[in-house]
């Protein structure tokens, strides 16, 4: 499991409005591009000083490709990051708090304790 990398995807996409739109419209292509080009960037370093070891596991890649936020929750992705990004992408398709309430409903099966979000 690479919860850190899941969180890094959610964080870096959320803070770039162009990437938010790109991920909404083309999740498969965006995840492939991000893993190849972005996953190993250290955010406070120049591009030449990259990490060499970060990669998704297939289940993580698939959850991101399919916008499957219940799966991300189950994997221990940080719920604040997931919620913030998915609101940015999909709140516009619903009235009022409709998306937030649908989000809660899709997680209604979850029992305590919730998945560990430690990285």
């Amino acid at each position: 499991m690479s919860k850190y990398l899941l969180d890094k995807f959610l964080y870096t996409v959320d803070r770039d409005q162009d990437l938010v739109e790109r991920y909404r419209e083309d999740p498969v292509g965006t995840v492939e591009w991000w893993e190849a080009e972005y996953a190993n960037r250290i955010l406070n370093c120049v591009d030449d000083e990259r990490s060499t070891w970060l990669a998704f596991e297939e289940a993580e890649r698939e959850a991101l490709r399919t916008h499957d936020y219940p799966a991300l929750f189950a994997m221990g992705a940080h719920p604040f990051l997931t919620l913030t990004l998915f609101i940015a992408m999909f709140e516009r398709d619903h009235e009022g708090l409709g998306f937030q309430l649908e989000y809660a409903r899709r997680l209604a099966h979850v029992e305590m304790p919730y998945p560990d979000i430690s990285t």
Binding site: P79, L83, A104, Y114
Partner: peptide, 9 residues
């Protein structure tokens, strides 16, 4: 609760 089943109640 943020990003969980009990949010926005």
């Amino acid at each position: 609760e943020l990003g969980g089943p009990r949010q926005f109640g």
